[in-house]
Design a protein around this nucleic acid. Structure first.
Lengths: 250, 250
DNA sequence: CAACAGACTAAACACGTGTTCAATCGGCGC
DNA sequence: GCGCCGATTGAACACGTGTTTAGTCTGTTG
């Protein structure tokens, strides 16, 4: 019997409610519910969250979560799989609609993804498997998008496409991570709001940098290219042949 | 950023080679020794390191470190002060020599700073006071340097200088943090080596982006500038929260 | 019904943690 | 000598942790 004398919280239930799409409805099983609240608790409090806290969230005894998952580490691993599957779903769906572009934007756009985003950030912070895999996903996607954009002529080619993509993803992801780490939202559920705020504030400088650059002179780049053995890829970049509007201010 | 304007010789320059005054010599006192090893242990193992481990490193009993510092939290605070003072010293010294430029570069150049760098990274990771203050230092410095560079005509002006500086610092710091988090050096003492490797690998795309930009068309930037209330001109901060949420294009 | 299986729990176990306590040791002033 | 005080310690305390154990309950199957 699940009388559970004191279950003060767990207002977050109502699993199959008229929620938006793409939130995995936990099946009726207790195991599924534990998995769901564990993932949310990890997202909110970090992976140091105690088994007892998770059990309380789910309204069960600590022994039961061990009974179902074997150990806390295995529960952690199960949560990792859970959010990776969730991410795959979101990605597949966002490919369907023309949204395409940036997974980060899609995720931060809807509050329903707050636990997902929180979990990913926690994993990035801890150097966990989910963080690593998420980064690889983003790099792989960005590689496709940039190569298309280069082909279409809206993005400049690079002397080392792989390195550029890695740099861009690391910068974007790292800046975001640093921002929410140094200035965390008081209500831990508002991580998506914090991300939107971050984007709103820093979108202009990013756009400026991407279209106008930062330096006015090519000297640093040319000097670097001069004395450094050229990078691996055979991809050549414009030396002077491709004229750019770069030369003056509007 | 490595300044390449000089002759094409590898950075054997190493502005701090052969001298040691920039690593604070712990005074003879046991308390000083404990503080020093505690800071190093925190840098190597994170702030979850146990008092017992620190005591073992210092060759004393756990009770003694509590006796000298009152509690683990106070020891943590003392370590924060310790590394902040250290950073101030490094900065003051690096201003003396023409190195000037980037604190990150100076710090990652010399292995003697490995504990300092490690500690700062741990603090950034944990959202601690040192991380926050270090970021503010970097932003303040970058503001000075960029304004000088803009005045000298080697850097383009921005529509929002403060936001740009913040964006650049967050990107650089965040990318670095993410890199060492996702791919940590096995020997935790080699964090400076990992940073140098990171810089070597990603310096080209950064330089490319800074001098040539990323996009070939101004459309995105112009569109953004069109429908967004123009950002404060006089180095002002963004207006407030929720200024212009979702709009639809006409 | 009896028997088995699995969900579930209360209580305890084993361990690591930060911290405290009482007691030494060693030097310095009187 | 005495007395005092800080440095230093081994042992314990109080607590939180993940996990185990023994047991109860419920449902299903023969």
């Amino acid at each position: 019997m699940r009388s559970v004398d004191a279950a003060p919280e767990e207002p977050t239930t109502d699993p199959t409610a008229g929620r938006g799409p793409l939130v995995p409805a936990p099946d009726g099983s207790t195991r599924g519910r534990i998995l769901d609240v564990a993932m949310r608790r990890f997202a909110r409090s970090g992976f140091g969250a105690s088994v007892r806290a998770i059990a309380a969230d789910a309204g069960v005894s600590p022994a039961l979560v061990i009974h179902h998952f074997g150990s806390k580490d295995k529960l952690h691993a199960a949560c990792d799989e859970y959010v990776l599957a969730w991410i795959r779903d979101v990605k597949r769906d966002s490919i369907g609609r023309a949204a395409g572009g940036n997974l980060l934007q899609v995720l931060s756009a809807a509050d329903q993804y707050a636990p997902l985003v929180g979990y990913v950030l926690r994993s990035l912070q801890a150097g966990g498997a989910v963080g690593r895999e998420f980064t690889e996903h983003m790099i792989a996607d960005a590689e496709v998008y940039t190569s298309e954009a280069v082909r279409d002529g809206v993005v400049r080619p690079s002397r080392d496409e792989a390195a550029r993509v890695r740099y861009l993803v690391y910068s974007a992801l790292g800046a975001m991570l640093l921002s929410v780490t140094l200035d965390p939202p008081q209500d831990a559920e508002d991580v998506t709001a914090a991300m939107r705020r971050f984007m709103d504030e820093l979108y202009l400088p990013m756009l400026e940098l991407f279209t106008e650059g930062f330096l006015t002179t090519r000297r640093m780049l040319d000097d670097y290219l001069l004395y450094v053995p050229d990078p691996p890829g055979g991809a050549q970049a414009p030396t002077d042949g491709t004229p750019h509007d770069h030369e003056e201010e509007p």
